[in-house]
Structure formats: structure tokens, C-alpha cells
Amino acid sequence: MSHDVSSQLLNLACGLFLLTALGVLWRRQVSALVSLLTLQGALLTTIAVLLAAEHHSAAALAVAAGIGILKAGIVPWMLRRVHRLVPDARETRPLVNISASILAAAGLTLLGYAAARPLVAAASSASGRATPVGLAVVLIGFFLAATRQRAISQIIGVLLIDNGIAAVAFLATGGVPLVVELGVSADLALAVLVLQILTNRLHATFGSTDLDELRELHD
């Protein structure tokens, strides 16, 4: 695979990566969201693999494989289980309507591009130029978490943030060290697990996973 093709592929993957994030913001069906997240996980894996290939690094390849298993495999699987267990959450309920969300996402993407300039400047390789994509996804994920009522969509928001950060890590530096990545991944998996259990408990105690119900604790 030539360098050009590789970088073209990388750009393509990054573009799609951002698009999937926007898609998550746009779609209402939870099942569609999970599919989009799976796709995003796969795209992230692609980016990791492409970069690993570029650096000819076996360790990076292993990290990429791990990422793939976790983000395109385990995490979506867990989400689907939540979705099955909590049947009332077919649709997300946005607090901000979809068009406004997209508009906000556009603004956040711009901010991501602006803010990522030091990262782009510092990155050694051409792939660094795609870093802003990751940052934009982080912000979009954050926005999603802040504006969706269902518990599961908030989990998806957290996962988007995580994907975005992983993308930044890969694009800007070729991936954080293996040990760190292992720890981070384990933490992520556990966090999702915890959230899954908590979603079940929410459903059991509140009878729904509507986060607006969570207003017992306030001042």
C-alpha cells in the first residue's frame, strides 16, 4: 500500500468518523445509534490499523486489534443488551431539537478545529492534520450527553467522547503507549459495564430510564 493511498484512506476514515458522530446526533432510533457507534468503532480501528501500518509497529497493530475488539465488539454488544433489557427506550428524546443540535455541532466542530491547532502543529506526520476530527467528536459527544434524555443515549455520548479522544491520540501521536492504552481500555469497559448495571437499576427503581426523572437530589 503506497503512502498516498494510505493517507487518502486515513482521510476518508477520519471524514467518516466525524460523519458517524453527526449521524448519532441526527438519528433518533436507539438501535440506529448503536449501529452508528459500532461503525464508528470500526472506523477508529481502521485509523489505528492504517497508522500502525504506516509506522510498521507491531505493538500499535496489537493496540489497534484490541481497540477493534473493544469498540466495535464488546461495547456495542453491551449497549445492545441494555437496549434489550430496557425496552421503553426505543427513541432518544432530545432536549434540544435536531436541527439546532446539528447547528451546535457545526459550531463545536469549528471550535475543535481551532483548538486543535497546537496538536496539528506539533504532530510529526501528515496524519496529524486530521486530529481536529477527534476533538470535534469529543465536543459532539459531550453535547450529546448534555442534551439527550435517555440513559442509553448518555452512555453513547460518553462513548463518543472516548472515541474522539482515542482518535486524537492515534492521529496526533500514533497512539498512547500500550500499557496506558490497556489501562484506559479496561477502565472504559468497566465504566460502560457500571453504566449498564446502573441503567438496569434505574429502570428497576424508577420504572424508566428517562434521566429527567432523576431529580430527587437537588438543593
Binding site: A146, T147, Q149, L211, L214, R215, H218, D219
Partner: peptide, 9 residues
Amino acid sequence: RALASGSVH
């Protein structure tokens, strides 16, 4: 008190 309204959002 409205600052801590309880809304996670």
C-alpha cells in the same frame, strides 16, 4: 438553589 436543580443535563 436553582444552580443544583438535580438535572444531570
